[in-house]
Amino acid sequence: MNLLFLIVIFTALGGVLSVLAASVFLLLPDDTRAKILPHGVSFATGALLAVAFWGLIPHAFEEVGVTQIQPLSGAIMLGLLMFFILEKLLIWRHCHSGSCEVHGDTDEHGHGHSHGSHKSAGTMIIIGDSIHNFVDGVLIAAAFLTDVKLGIVTSLAVAAHEIPQEVGDFAILLHSGYSKAKALFYNVLASLTTIVGGVLAYYSLGDLQDSLPYFLAMASSSFIYIAVADLIPTLHKKTDIKTSLQQIALIFAGICLIVSLHGVAHDIQLDGVENEATHQHSS
């Protein structure tokens, strides 16, 4: 199957479809949405960590020689610092809990109490998501250009963490005065930048094969930072035994799913290679 076609399909999965999936939560009562969201955050934490440490980082190191191991490790470290700085500048801001300095605090029911302009917070969400989704598209394309199975699990991990984020973003946009229709429209519009990033990366990164391991390193930095800096602190807000055990179970579920999908994608890719080789031999 054409690689560009795969990139378009899976960047759409990581962007547009995650928004549409998150939009289902708009139909739920606030209390129900507040109960479901933390479970999605726990699952996304495991998925992101698994993709970073089981998929992206090993593949990045496989692509470079022994002399490049230290520079590649440095790229991962610099990536973490870069995402910290971006978040400080309010460009890369994820509100999974519905409470942050940019968007204002929320009560236990998810209702916001903004400290500034509601419209400004909504605009910041749309701009931030557009940039974030564009970068996600580049990272997905880089993963596909390295290995098809890596591209598949990377796009699934993007979708896993995008869904709970988009649910939070919907809540913020609604509180900022947007109607449900406009909130959905602007979120879908912002998600299209994932496809744009993937297509542009396909045409530019293809000629920069030596740089692909460093894009994978940046992708792993992104996933690790989101999991450790944004998602895990949210999970620590609940400390009772029952909730903690649920969080641990869902984190491991996210890890197991990505590891399993990685194996399935590997088998599918091997079958495709064997079939192609058989076809060429017979012809």
Rank of each mutant, 00 (worst) to 15 (best):
V135I: 15
L173G: 01
G104R: 06
T146V: 13
D147V: 05
E87C: 11
A157L: 11
A121T: 09
A157K: 09
H103W: 10
I69S: 13
R93Y: 11
S114A: 14
K119V: 13
L184D: 07
C100P: 12
T67L: 15
Y178N: 13
Q68E: 15
G98F: 03
M77Q: 09
G168H: 04
Q68M: 14
G79C: 08
G137L: 02
L80Y: 12
S191F: 12
P71I: 13
H132F: 14
D136F: 01
S176I: 02
G168W: 01
K182T: 00
T106G: 14
G128I: 08
V167F: 13
T123F: 04
I152D: 01
K88E: 10
G112Y: 00
F170W: 05
A142K: 08
I125A: 08
Y178D: 13
G168L: 06
F83R: 05
F83I: 06
I131Q: 07
A121C: 10
T146P: 00
H175D: 01
P71K: 13
G122C: 05
D105N: 06
C95Q: 10
V135N: 02
I76K: 09
V167Q: 04
A159C: 14
I76V: 15
K88R: 14
K149R: 14
S155G: 04
C100K: 01
S117M: 03
H175R: 06
Q68D: 14
L184Y: 05
L174T: 00
I140H: 02
H115K: 09
A157Y: 01
V188D: 03
G128F: 01
L189N: 07
V138L: 10
I125D: 00
T67F: 14
I163G: 11
A190P: 12
E166M: 11
I127Y: 06
M77V: 14
S99R: 09
V148N: 08
L192T: 14
A141V: 01
S73A: 15
E162Y: 00
I172G: 00
I140E: 00
M77L: 15
V138K: 04
I140C: 03
S191P: 10
S117Y: 04
L184F: 08
G112R: 02
T67S: 15
N133T: 04
H109C: 08
V102A: 15
T106C: 15
A75C: 12
M82C: 13
P71E: 12
L81Q: 14
E162A: 07
Q70R: 13
S179P: 07
L139H: 05
I91F: 15
I91E: 12
H175Y: 10
I195H: 11
F144T: 09
L156D: 06
P71D: 11
S99G: 04
L72W: 06
H111Q: 11
C100M: 06
C100A: 05
S155M: 01
I152P: 00
T154M: 10
I76F: 08
G112N: 03
